[in-house]
């Protein structure tokens, strides 16, 4: 069982890690870059839309500004910084990780951990069948054979 658990842990943590890899890459493609950037910047005058989605006058101005800044060779981070220095963290749909957003980013995983600890009480005060990790390779082979029959 230890084997299975360790396997599971590896797989799960791999799967957990995978989505994180895809985020934050800078795209080479210009259209794609504009699209991604204006999607994560919030329109200030709308109820709740990104710059990309909005057709409000200010949103159009800011979109054009983004394009201009890209043409000037600014990086995505510099463009985000440009917006934040004028409008504050409010413009970022992707809240930056800092002291006051720590709970936001870690919270979900803390909650998960807390619930796992609580859930242990469902299981651990029951007897867990011991010796299950002592299956030999032969027993495993037999089991497989049985299954294939």
């Amino acid at each position: 069982m230890k084997l299975l658990l360790s396997n599971l842990v590896v797989v799960v943590s791999l799967l957990l890690g995978m989505p994180l890899i895809g985020i934050g890459q800078e795209s080479e493609n210009l259209d794609q870059r504009i699209f991604l950037l204006t999607n994560e910047l919030r329109c200030l005058v709308c109820q709740n839309q990104s710059l990309a989605e909005s057709e409000a006058a200010l949103a159009v101005d800011l979109k054009n500004k983004v394009v201009k800044l890209i043409e000037q060779g600014k990086t995505d981070d510099q463009i985000r910084e440009y917006m934040v220095s004028r409008y504050g963290d409010f413009v970022l749909y992707d809240p930056p990780f800092k002291l006051k957003t720590m709970l936001l980013w870690w919270g979900p995983f803390l909650i998960l951990l807390l619930m796992l600890i609580m859930a242990k009480s469902f299981v651990s005060n029951k007897k867990i069948i011991t010796g299950s990790q002592s299956y030999t390779e032969e027993q495993l082979r037999n089991a497989r054979k049985k299954l294939n029959e």
Binding site: L44, V45, A57, L58, D61, L62, K65, R86, Y87, G88
Partner: peptide
């Protein structure tokens, strides 16, 4: 006329 300076001032309304 194009709201360029206003952006520098963080004007949104």
């Amino acid at each position: 006329p194009k709201g360029v300076v206003a952006i520098d001032f963080g004007v949104y309304g």
